[in-house]
Simulated scan of single mutants.
Amino acid sequence: MTPPALRNSAAFPALAASLLVLATAGPAGAAGCLLEPQGEGRVATVIDARSLRLEDGREVRLAGIERGGTDRVSGRAALSAIAGGREVTLHGDDDTPDRYGRQGAFVFVAGSEHSVQSELLRRGEALVSSDTSEKNCAATLAAAENAARDAKLGMWAETTAIKNAESSGDILSAIGHFSVVEGRVLSVRQAGAITYLNFGRNWTRDFAATISRRIIPAFESANLGPKSLENRRIRVRGIVSSRGGPRIELFRVGQVEVLGGK
């Protein structure tokens, strides 16, 4: 029964609405990741470490994470253990398939408040991709990755899980793969429309992170202007390429983490 003080209060409708939202929130809302529902289904096949196919034929790409390292078998096995053959619900901002026909989504196994993405991260079987725009989702994923790293689970049991920016050869071994690289920015230089965060003194050999001129305003708005990163120890994540030395191109602020003072 509604208490009289609330029943006669103008605030009651708003409170009742809030309680209704909490009562009917799906798993994405319960886990602090406020995304729209995109349907449901049963997992028929786990394609790889980030993709699965539902019984109705939809192919789903797990949003917000990347496969960690080069071990394809481990990642697929971990996803199979969590979601294989299970009923799942999908959540996201947009259910439009990508150019490969895959629907990007946060996936929740029936009865779980944590996304499949979070579970993979907690086991050290994935890396946060930093392409999630919803802040609560991004924070949830980052916390899961940090917990696995602190506990040295999965990939984090290996000392090479985070590449040393001074070890160009080790970074080059991960070309084409999503990786995390850590080190001190020795200099910041601009060449044309590209700004280079140089972690070494030889641009033909050493590691650098690059930022396109059009992206700079976003970094400056986040107090991560390139010049402010000079002499700072930072961690960057992204796909490793080779242009002279090993490179990671920075598209989003979330790819950079400042680790300490100058």
Rank of each mutant, 00 (worst) to 15 (best):
R149G: 05
R149P: 05
R149D: 03
D150M: 07
D150Y: 06
A151W: 07
K152Q: 13
L153W: 04
L153Q: 08
L153S: 00
G154F: 01
M155L: 08
W156Q: 05
W156Y: 01
W156S: 04
W156F: 07
W156A: 06
W156P: 08
A157Q: 15
A157H: 12
A157R: 14
E158G: 14
T159G: 12
T159W: 10
T160E: 05
T160S: 07
T160A: 09
T160D: 09
A161I: 04
A161M: 02
I162G: 01
I162V: 07
I162L: 01
K163A: 15
K163W: 09
K163N: 12
K163Q: 14
K163M: 13
N164R: 10
N164F: 06
N164T: 09
N164W: 09
A165C: 09
A165P: 04
A165H: 07
A165Y: 00
A165I: 04
E166R: 15
E166G: 14
E166D: 15
E166F: 12
E166I: 13
E166Y: 12
E166S: 15
E166Q: 15
E166H: 13
E166P: 10
E166L: 15
S167C: 09
S167P: 08
S167T: 12
S167H: 13
S168M: 03
S168R: 06
S168N: 08
G169I: 05
D170V: 11
I171W: 00
I171M: 05
I171F: 04
I171S: 03
I171P: 06
L172Q: 11
L172G: 02
S173H: 07
S173A: 12
A174E: 14
I175P: 11
I175S: 14
I175V: 15
G176S: 07
G176D: 01
G176V: 02
G176Y: 06
G176L: 07
G176R: 00
H177N: 11
H177R: 10
H177V: 09
H177Y: 11
H177W: 09
F178I: 05
F178H: 01
S179R: 08
S179V: 02
S179C: 00
